[in-house]
Design a protein around this nucleic acid. Structure first.
Lengths: 209, 209, 209, 209
DNA sequence: GATTAATCGAGACGGTACGTCATGTCTTAGC
DNA sequence: GCTAAGACATGACGTACCGTCTCGATTAATC
């Protein structure tokens, strides 16, 4: 998001890496403590011991700094695991996400999603660096499940990911109900098994309840 | 000191209903065209041919006006239908929502969700007047499906609703992928049937494990 | 210099006379104490207990406020007198000016002259409200002197005024030499010896040296 | 630490005379075209194809560069002439000055006078290099006139110079009236009539007193 | 019909943050 | 040791909204 002139040989005084880091750290702290709307470039500059001009030299506006700050601070978070059971692995991943969203990153992401409704660059950054990354972590699990025969062979991976993770983000954003482990478990259960009475084997449930 | 002493009969010039409507309409138009952050009370007043004081006399701040504007303009519910098939009815409802979210109300709701991340009153209004209303429309469908044996008898209604509708909102908010009818159909299919290979039916797992 | 819409009936909250005066007083104090270049709108606002917006609502920029401040504070200053002797009256007026220029108004006027080199509006205000006013005070004295036969009958009033007062301003601006009473006296003497009808009767010096 | 240790042989890359000239030329052009206040070091550097650091290495601030630029470009003195008539010579000199002040140097000098109200160094440079030089050109003319008996023997040279030239600068600075040749002639006439030994022609005061 | 009281429009007010700009200092690499 | 390039801290600029506040003018219901 920050500028880069790509001019072969760099001329002049090089950009201060120290300042850059101080700015991103300050922006992150502020976002966390007061929320996006209340973050101020003036305050970021003050906290980072940096001039406003330096911030505006490298980022076009507040949203860009804050977004960069987020991307900088949230890289390798939710790991893979392979317990041999896709459902268990997916549940673990979903719990992991719910946990992250419940913590400091949650406020961060909620704020960015909010901002992304107005600012296309934030939206793009969010999609590219957060959403795409998370989805990329889930696809292998689903594929593995399909290969092993745990999951339906005709799955649409993207739709499946939406079905599993969409509800989690939705709850975070609306606060309609809490993001408890119990919720995650029920969600996994419902989506994995399906809401419908299984079409499956004749005789199994044909006789009603 | 209170605006209305509740003495039965109001005295003085009554509130201008015309002004009220003009304000809400102007707020709605603005929100739609420029997004929440860019809406200004000054502009609402100008468009509505109304003074700022009149706005602030009746609403505490920008968010309240815009929220009211939304509530005023989104009474028309997405009706029920009962075709006898719960899945079909739910799909219809989901398609209906997707259609609404794709239109002007979509921008409206997205803006309010964004604002609600910061403003608890907007969050509350949104939950109460939009989210609760939508969920209330879905519950009977699910119950009917359970009673008829189309849907699992042990459904957690709230989780089911999240599973069905959460992904739709999530896509709208992130723009990760479009809200097409095809997506709705696949989503319904995946959630209704479940992602997992059914425990039941013979033949499906012919190769054993 | 400040705005005036001249819209017959005034609407809305009337301009705060108190704020206006506080601004002009603050601007004047500042100009006096730190000089034009160091005057800051921010500081004027702070001193006057007024918001910057209020200043910019009524004046287009710093120069305008300071100029207005000057005009406000320097109206009726150097009086007329008629002692019966034009030379004496003019000398008194010149001493008066020299005295004023040596005091707080001197810094003020020097600053405005400086600013007027760049800002045409300041130049105009200065010409209209200071220079024209001063010249208007001198013309009657010169005319009186002409009528009484103390001064040459073919005087060009404007040139005479320039000849008498130009050197005073010039010394103030360059600081080349001090504005003492002695200087004024010598200046009057030198210039008057020419403005005055020559004492020399015919024959007095006709024969040269 | 001092820039030149005076150790006889200078070490390192010598100062670029080309850069120096380019800077002064650029400064002069800028001052002329936009006025002192609008001149920026940044722009000087850009025009001169020079870095800001180079400017600040050799001049303490903007005023110094501009002043130097002026001094560099205004060496060509306004020569003397001796026609045998002091009045004629002085008039020629005054016309010469008026002409100079009406041209590019006029803007230059006006800008420096303006700046000198705030910056003592500019004031000093102006006095030393411009004002003193001009006065030095006039004194011999006045002395010659006194010796020849054209001018009063008791002249105060400094006051006389102020009386002759002060009005010219004053008109230039205020723009109260134009610096025409006609003005110069009338000014000379008015002031000379007093500086000069009265011709005391017969008939002038025919009516006696 | 006059009085009363709350509304309305207009728009000025103190504040706060914005994003821009110029200053004068500094840091680097290259000549 | 000088140079060009350009990043840096500082601090004022002028703008835009915020939410509050006076005004004089409306507008009904009550007297």
């Amino acid at each position: 998001m920050s500028k880069s002139l790509e001019t072969g040989v760099p001329r002049g005084r090089p950009r201060s890496e120290k300042a850059r880091r101080a700015i991103l750290r300050a922006a992150g702290e502020l976002l966390e403590s007061v929320g996006f709307a209340a973050v101020t470039v003036e305050e970021i500059a003050a906290r980072a011991g940096v001039s406003k001009a330096t911030i505006y030299r490298w980022w076009p506006n507040k949203a860009a700094v804050v977004t960069d700050s987020f991307l900088e601070l949230t890289s390798p978070e939710i790991g893979f695991v392979d317990t041999g059971c896709a459902v268990r692995d997916l549940t673990a991943q979903m719990r992991g996400l719910a946990h992250v969203l419940g913590g400091r990153s949650g406020r961060f992401i909620a704020a960015l999603i909010a901002e992304s409704q107005t600012d296309p660059e934030v939206a793009e950054a969010l999609r590219e660096h957060w959403i795409a990354a998370r989805r990329a972590e889930t696809r292998p699990l689903l594929r593995r499940g399909m290969e092993r025969g745990e999951l339906r062979g005709d799955l649409d991976l993207e739709v499946a990911i939406d079905a599993l993770f969409g509800p989690i983000y939705w709850r975070m954003l609306t606060g309609y109900a809490p993001l408890t482990d119990d919720f995650i478990d029920r969600l996994t259960d419902h989506v994995m098994a399906g809401l419908r009475v299984p079409a499956g084997g004749p005789g199994i449930r044909t006789n009603g309840e």
